[in-house]
Structures are given as structure tokens and as C-alpha cells.
């Protein structure tokens, strides 16, 4: 069961998700503008760290990941294509992938030798199966999540917020991988409809 805790009464969409300010800044960064990069960092770093730390748990490793990702954003800003999506999506996707890479390399090294990782998959599983508390700060996102079926919400939570692979989720929930994919896909489509995301 998912417990959603709203800590922000504003029901408006996050300004970062709507405004094209990050797009403008990122395109200036692509021309070598270090001041634009500084502004872009100030605007997005706490959100990126919020996401990375949610996946990674460890604060200092999360800061390392944010630093790596931000530097990569500086280096590759010219590759951002505004026709394919928002800058903030481009940036947070990079951060999410990198955080998961970090978890996975820690998991695989744990499996190989020390059996000590950043995150204990099984402990996570136990807590998920009982209740997961996500502090969702936006009413709109909270409402949208509440419209999912419990199974869809669980799949979204594990696959996105948890960063687990489809096969891991399938193992944790003891369902076929195809079922996981269907739940996740249906859940994401439903979320898009409920949140009114312009796609």
C-alpha cells in the first residue's frame, strides 16, 4: 500500500516542468556560456539531487553523481534537441540513468564479493510489500498517482522511483515480466492522462 504525503498545498504544476527557462539556459550553455550554466545549476541542482538521492540513498555518492551528470550536461549541451522534449527532462533522464547505473554497479560488486551494497534489494522489497512512503510534494502528481490501480502504482513506484529493472520487479512481485511491463505501461499512460502532461 502506498502512502502519499502531501507537503505542499499548491496544486499548480512545478514551474520547472512548464517554463522553457531551462531550455533557454541549456541552449546558452551549448554556446559555452558559463554564467548560463551557473544559473541552470542553481535552478535544477536540488531537484536533481532529490531524484538521485531517492534512488541511491547515500548522500555523498548522490552528490558525486550530480557532479558527474552536471559536467556531462556542460560537455554535451549542444546535443540537446529542443524538438525532442524539455531540457529538464533531458537532464533528469541523464541523472536517473546515472543513479541507477551506480546502484547496479554496487549491486553487482556486492554479488561478486563483499555482499555490501549501497542499497539492499531485499530490504527494499520487504518495505515495498508493506508500505512505501513517498513524499510527493505536488497535489497534481499525488492525485494522479491515486487514480492508478494498486498494482499499476506499485509497478511505477518500483520501476521509476525505485529504479528496478522489469525482471527485478517481476521477481519481487512473483509475476511474469510481461505482466510488469503491462502494468507499468498502463500506469504511465494513465498518469499522463491524469496529469495532463503535454507529450
Amino acid at each position: 500500500m502506498l502512502v502519499l504525503v502531501s507537503t505542499q498545498s499548491a496544486s499548480e504544476r512545478d514551474p520547472l516542468a512548464d517554463l522553457d527557462v531551462t531550455n533557454t539556459l541549456l541552449q546558452r550553455v551549448a554556446t559555452g556560456d558559463q554564467r548560463a550554466f551557473s544559473d541552470l545549476y542553481d535552478l535544477t541542482a536540488s531537484r536533481m539531487l532529490g531524484l538521485v538521492r531517492h534512488v541511491l540513498k547515500d548522500h555523498s555518492q548522490s552528490e558525486e553523481v550530480v557532479q558527474e551528470v552536471m559536467l556531462e550536461i556542460w560537455q554535451t549541451a549542444s546535443r540537446f534537441d529542443p524538438n525532442k522534449g524539455k531540457a529538464v527532462t533531458w537532464m533528469l533522464t541523464m541523472a536517473h540513468r546515472r543513479a541507477i547505473d551506480r546502484v547496479r554497479s554496487a549491486q553487482s560488486s556486492r554479488d561478486r564479493d563483499t555482499k555490501v551494497g549501497i542499497r539492499d534489494l531485499d530490504r527494499e522489497f520487504d518495505s515495498v510489500s508493506e508500505s512505501v512512503e513517498i513524499r510527493v510534494e505536488h497535489d497534481r502528481v499525488e492525485k494522479a498517482l491515486s487514480r492508478l490501480t494498486d498494482l499499476q502504482r506499485q509497478a511505477v513506484e518500483l520501476a521509476y522511483y525505485g529504479g528496478y529493472s522489469h525482471s527485478e520487479v517481476a521477481e519481487m512481485l512473483s509475476v511474469p515480466i510481461g505482466t510488469v511491463k503491462t502494468r507499468l505501461r498502463d500506469g504511465m499512460i494513465r498518469l499522463r492522462e491524469e496529469m495532463g502532461v503535454a507529450s
Binding site: 516542468a17 548522500h59 527532462t89 510527493v136 505536488h138 522511483y161 529504479g163 503535454a198
Partner: peptide, 23 residues
Amino acid sequence: DFDFDYDEFGDVATELALALPPV
């Protein structure tokens, strides 16, 4: 094995990410 579909659901994922508490 990691196969979250960013191409299709990146926009929704961004909303989910931005709903997390900033750090």
C-alpha cells in the same frame, strides 16, 4: 535489463521526479 522507457514516458517521469522533495 534496465529498460524504463524514457523515450516514451520521459515527460511523465519528469513530473514524478519533480514531485520528490528537493535536496
